[in-house]
Design a binder for these strands. Structure first.
Lengths: 354, 354
DNA sequence: TTGAAAGCGCTAACAG
DNA sequence: CTGTTAGCGCTTTCAA
C-alpha cells in the first residue's frame, strides 16, 4: 500500500538529464515548440515516458499567461437550465483544450463578484457569466477592461458591450400571450424568481414580460402588472404566490412559470389545491423538460435550445481567447412555443384545448 | 470604451515600491504570513488598494504546490444526480476556500483518464471522481500513489482503498423487491446504463441488483438475469429495452429504472405504448425527482440524499487536503423507498396500490 | 521585524 | 538545431 506521495515529481531538468540533452531542448521537445531534431525529440520523449514525467501546468501558466481553463459562473448548477448550458459550454471549450472552473452564485451578486475575482486571480483565459444583476456589473466591466474575454449567458447587461448567448424569447412570449388571450384569459399570473427587488428585471424576464404586455396591447388590453410575482427560489414562496394568484378576489385564470424549477412547484401546488389544469387554471412554463410531456395534462412550454446556447457561448469564448479579431456575432437562438394540454379556455369551456 | 487589456497587472514588487518597503515584506503582508509590523502591514495594504493589486494565484500555486482548487469528475453534469451532487461538493469545498474544476466523462473511461491526468497536471489539491469503470482504475491508483487526496462519488472501486460518498442502496433495494414480490410480480425488468459490457457492474448497480436478487432468494425464488438490460444512455436504446421487456413472450410485469433519466424515458415509453401504470406495468425508479410526484400516478422511488452525498464528499476531501490524519470515515447515507402510485398488483388486481 | 537573494518548473530570448 | 541565461510573480530561506 503505497501511502507515499513524497516522491518528488520529475521535472524537465530530470528528463533532460535522463535524455542527455540540455534543459531547453528537453522543454522544447516536451512542449512541442521551437526547433528540435528528430533524434533529440525521440530521446527526450522516451526519457519522459521512462520517468513517467508530467508537465507542471502551473509553471507553464505562470510564464505564458495562459491557463487553458475558463470560468463558468452560473446561478445554480442544479437548475436544469444551467446544468444543460454548462454541459454545452464544457463540450465546446474542451474541444479547444480548455477546462471548466465552475462557480455557483445562488443568484447573489456578492457571490458573483467574489467568484469572478477569484477566477481572474486564477488567470482563467476567459469567462462565461450568467449575471445575477442587470445593474450591478462593475466586476464584469473590470473583466472586460482587463482584456479578458467574456461571454454572457442568458442575460445581457445594459451598457456592457458584451455579447450574450441566449434565446430570442420575445416572439415566443408574444405567441404565448396570443394563445392565452385567444382562449379568453385576461388575468394571467407571472411567477419569476428574484431575491428582493431586482431593478431592472433581468433581460430574459423582461423579454418574457414584454411579450406578454405586447400581446395585451395588441388586443387593446392592458396586462395588470400586479400579477407579476417575483419570489425567491424557495418552494414555500412560490406556493404562496400561486395560492395568492388563484385564490384572490379577482383570481388569475392562467399562470406562467418563468422556468422549469418554478413550473414544477406551480404544477404541484395546483394539484394540491385541488385545481384542475387546464379547466380551472391554465399553465404555461418556460424551458421544456422531459417531464413536461409526462404529466397529465402535458405542459405547454416555451422551449429554448439550452445546450446549444451553452455550446455557442463556449465556442465564442474559445474563439475570442484564440484571438479571433471578429468572431461571428452571437445570434439569439429561436425559442418556440410548444402547445400541449395545459392551456385551455377560461373556465374550462368547450373550446378546443391547446 | 477601454478596449485595453494591455495595462500590465501590478505585482508585489509594484506594491512594495509604492509602500516603500521590500518586496519580501510586501509579500508577507499581502499573503498574511511571516512577521510583519502593523505599520508596514497597513502601509502595504493601503498601497495595494490604491493600485488595485490582485495576487497572482498561479505564482502562488507554483511555489506552495497548493492551487486551492479541486477537480470533480462526473459522468454527466446534466444528469440531475450529478448536478445535485456537484452542488453539494461545491458548497462544501468552497467553504474551505476551494474552487471546483469540472470535467464530464460521458461515462467513458478514456475521457475519465484524460480528465484526471489534466487535473493532476493542473495541480488540483484533490479530486472527487465518480468512476466510470469498476475495473479500469490505474489512473485513480496513480492519484493515490501521488499522494493527492481522492474521494469517490457514488461508486466504489474494488481493490482501491479509497472511501466513496454514497447511499446505502441495498436495504432499500431489498425493500423494493419485497414490495414488488408481495404484489405478485415475478418478472421484473431492470434497466440500467452501461456503454457496452461493463464487467463487473458499477457498485451501485450491483447493489441494486443484489437487493433484487436477495428478495427473490428470500422467497425461494430466482430472479431471471435475462431481465437485466444494460443499455447506453440514449432514448432510443432505452425505449427498445422497454418494448422488449413488456412485449416479449414472457413479459415483465414491473420495470425498475436505475436512475431518473432512464425513469423518464420508461414512463414516456409506457405511455406511448398505451400501457397503464400500474395496471399493466408497475414502475419503480431510483432517484427521487420533483416530477416523480407530479405524474399520474406518481412514481414509487428509491430516494437518495444526493446533495448530502456530494456535500459529504466535499467535506471529506477538504479535510484530507487540510492534512487531517484520520478524518471520520464516510458513512453511506440511507436510501429510502418511497411508495407512491406507480407500483400495484400484477394484472392490475384489486389489491391496494402502494 | 526586515531585506537580499534563491528558488518553484517552465518558457523565451539570445547567442553559438 | 542547441545550449546558456534570464525571467514569469510569488514564497522562503538566511542573515542582518
Amino acid at each position: 500500500m503505497a501511502k507515499a506521495g513524497n516522491q518528488r515529481e520529475f521535472t524537465v531538468a530530470d528528463v533532460a538529464r535522463e535524455a542527455g540533452v540540455s534543459k531547453a531542448q528537453a522543454a522544447r521537445a516536451l512542449g512541442a515548440y521551437g526547433a528540435v531534431s528528430d533524434a533529440v525529440r525521440s530521446r527526450v520523449l522516451a526519457a519522459a515516458a521512462r520517468l513517467n514525467y508530467r508537465p507542471n501546468q502551473t509553471a507553464r501558466t505562470l510564464n505564458t499567461g495562459r491557463s487553458h481553463s475558463v470560468g463558468v459562473v452560473v446561478g445554480d448548477i442544479e437548475n436544469p437550465y444551467f446544468s444543460l448550458a454548462t454541459r454545452g459550454i464544457s463540450d465546446a471549450v474542451e474541444r479547444s483544450g480548455f477546462n471548466v472552473v465552475l462557480a455557483n452564485t445562488s443568484e447573489r451578486v456578492t457571490a458573483e463578484r467574489a467568484a469572478v475575482d477569484m477566477l481572474m486571480d486564477k488567470r482563467v483565459d476567459g469567462l462565461v457569466v450568467a449575471p445575477a444583476s442587470a445593474s450591478d456589473a462593475a466586476h464584469l466591466r473590470a473583466v472586460v477592461d482587463a482584456g479578458r474575454p467574456l461571454v454572457l449567458l442568458d442575460r445581457t447587461v445594459p451598457g456592457l458591450a458584451v455579447d450574450a448567448a441566449r434565446a430570442e424569447i420575445e416572439p415566443a412570449a408574444r405567441e404565448a400571450a396570443d394563445l392565452l388571450l385567444a382562449l379568453g384569459h385576461r388575468r394571467i399570473g407571472y411567477i419569476t424568481t428574484a431575491d428582493g427587488g431586482h431593478t431592472p428585471l433581468p433581460s430574459p424576464v423582461a423579454a418574457r414580460v414584454a411579450g406578454l404586455v405586447g400581446g395585451f396591447t395588441d388586443h387593446g388590453l392592458t396586462w395588470d402588472p400586479g400579477l407579476l410575482r417575483p419570489c425567491p427560489h424557495e418552494e414555500a414562496a412560490i406556493r404562496r404566490a400561486v395560492a395568492d394568484l388563484v385564490r384572490g378576489a379577482d383570481p388569475a385564470t392562467a399562470l406562467i412559470a418563468s422556468d422549469s424549477l418554478i413550473g414544477q412547484v406551480v404544477v404541484g401546488a395546483l394539484q394540491e389545491e385541488g385545481l384542475r389544469i387546464p379547466d380551472d387554471v391554465s399553465v404555461l412554463m418556460y424551458d421544456d423538460q422531459p417531464w413536461a410531456r409526462l404529466v397529465t395534462p402535458p405542459i405547454t412550454v416555451v422551449a429554448q435550445p439550452t445546450y446549444d446556447i451553452g455550446f455557442a457561448a463556449g465556442e465564442r469564448l474559445a474563439a475570442l481567447i484564440g484571438g479571433a479579431t471578429n468572431p461571428p456575432p452571437l445570434v439569439p437562438l429561436p425559442a418556440t412555443l410548444i402547445r400541449r394540454g395545459s392551456v385551455g379556455p377560461v373556465g374550462g369551456g368547450p373550446a378546443a384545448r391547446s
